[in-house]
Design a protein around this nucleic acid. Structure first.
Lengths: 194, 194
DNA sequence: GACACTTTCAGACGGCTAGTTCAATACTGG
DNA sequence: CCAGTATTGAACTAGCCGTCTGAAAGTGTC
């Protein structure tokens, strides 16, 4: 028999999982957490409702699988080695995910449903770390270790707030200003006091 | 007849409005946006479901009234005049609202339901500005005008991210570090280039 | 191709909840 | 006391969620 972790031998199961999880992700991103219903997902994916229930008994199972897929598929601009250029690119990418990728709604969903168990808390961490992985990598490569966390919080937080709550369009000038302000309080990596 | 804006003469109406809006606010804060149902609100407030429907035809009407009340009742620590102390106090207050006041869930709710009309967008702005009013006031009094907005975004954003997405407890040391980092990139108010 | 096995399907069902309606009751100001 | 208004409790419709079923279709094997 196949191993427990790779038991999806039947091509029907593979197809179903792929199509349904993809449809769930689209629904989650476009219409939000509450739109993820077995019936809605089945309709969108082109499968019967009972089939969806058979694979993912609860709504949370569906959301979990979709978030996993979204995070796995996420890709970020490659680093060039130039600290400021890479930071601006990563920040712009994050801002774009928030607005056009509807990452803001995804994050809002996990925060609002955070009281529904540890699974949701794990999804929150997964989404946040995936969305900020680009920035974290750039910072880790260029600034002192003790500056990485605060700088990351300052950059991601400010962009999140500007885009999501102030409805501001964060153009190159805004991003540049934020980057300069944050870098002013950091020490280069490898420095004596880093 | 009474004026249109102050027509609530009947004490029954006054009582009903007060009790129901308060119950809605508690429900909204404790259990989230989706828990705000006419039936649930009526049960909690001790009124009949039909009465709640008579005053607030839609769920959004209920949420709107509750958010208005919450924002009106919000109070913030008084300023002492010491920039750093006031900033730290305002930030700590904001962090406390996020965790114990469940402001994070309120904000998540309006973000997730932002596609349900302009009313929700107004609520988002109202909540965000109320929660950050303390910091904005302190900054406006001490740093150059052009530094207020970016500094506000950096401070509120970083605290929001640390508390809500990283699950960090922001103690005095963390707040102090953030304040120093942000202030390093600002110019005092009234300065020549401010 | 024949076969046993698994997956998917389509629909029906009971249960729960949202929102509406309405006659009866309680309250208010005069 | 009385006319007008607010509140009530309950009934009712409509719609959706989750479950279950037998039938149909697909899969791997001999």
């Amino acid at each position: 028999m196949a191993s427990e972790t790779e038991e999806a031998l039947d091509p029907r199961v593979v197809r179903t999982r792929r199509d349904v999880v993809r449809a769930t992700g689209e629904l989650l991103v476009e219409d939000g957490w509450d739109a993820v219903t077995h019936a809605a997902v089945a309709r969108r994916a082109g499968y019967a409702k009972a089939t969806v229930y058979a694979h993912w008994p609860t709504r949370l199972d569906l959301v979990e699988a979709a978030v996993e897929l979204i995070c796995d598929e996420a890709d970020h601009p490659a680093a060039t080695g130039d600290l400021r250029a890479d930071l601006r690119a990563a920040l712009a990418d994050f801002a774009d995910d928030l607005t056009h990728g509807h990452l803001d709604r995804l994050l809002a969903g996990v925060v609002e449903h955070a009281n529904e168990g540890d699974v949701v808390a794990r999804l929150r961490t997964r989404l946040y770390e995936t969305g900020t992985a680009g920035m974290r990598a750039v910072l880790a490569a260029h600034v002192a270790r003790r500056d990485v966390e605060p700088a990351l919080a300052l950059l991601t937080g400010s962009v999140l707030v500007l885009v999501t709550f102030e409805g501001r369009r964060v153009d190159a000038a805004v991003l540049d200003d934020l980057v300069e302000r944050v870098l002013a309080s950091t020490t280069p990596a490898g420095s004596a006091d880093g």
